[in-house]
């Protein structure tokens, strides 16, 4: 069996990639993908913890986190679609309507 610490370590790398992408990318869909990466790092941590502690709740947490991620994508894509229908772009750079 793979040592859980390797799984959690992979989680750290994926989290870092996701966070970096979420802050630097300008395309809304790619930002959404980066958020998914962070949520997958969360799943790896939960699974690693469940394997390490022998705690079956960890598996359940991971399953629920997947469901939350799916709901978030659905809502995100719907919001981006309404953005696209009005602004004809999904670039986060063009959002300058709301200013003081």
């Amino acid at each position: 069996m793979i040592d859980p610490s390797w799984v959690a370590g992979l989680g750290v790398i994926i989290f870092a990639i996701g966070l970096w992408g979420a802050f630097t990318r300008k395309n809304a869909i790619i930002v959404l993908m980066c958020i998914e990466l962070i949520l997958n790092a969360v799943n790896l941590n939960f699974v690693a913890g469940a394997a390490h502690f022998g705690d079956e709740l960890g598996w359940m947490y991971a399953a629920f986190a997947i469901a939350i991620a799916a709901a978030e994508v659905a809502i995100g894509l719907a919001i981006f679609l309404s953005l696209y229908s009005k602004h004809a772009t999904i670039s986060l750079d063009g959002l300058e309507l709301l200013k003081n």
């Binding site: 996701g18 966070l19 979420a22 802050f23 809304a28 930002v31 959404l32 958020i35 962070i38 949520l39 969360v42 986190a65 939350i68 978030e72 809502i75 995100g76 919001i79 981006f80 309404s82 953005l83 229908s85 009005k86 602004h87 986060l92 959002l95 309507l97 709301l98």
Partner: peptide
């Protein structure tokens, strides 16, 4: 829609980081 996208992106990133 602009407000929605801004609020969603920030909210989703911060809740993912929190998780």
């Amino acid at each position: 829609s602009e407000a929605g996208v801004k609020y969603f992106i920030t909210g989703a990133i911060s809740s993912a980081v929190g998780l």
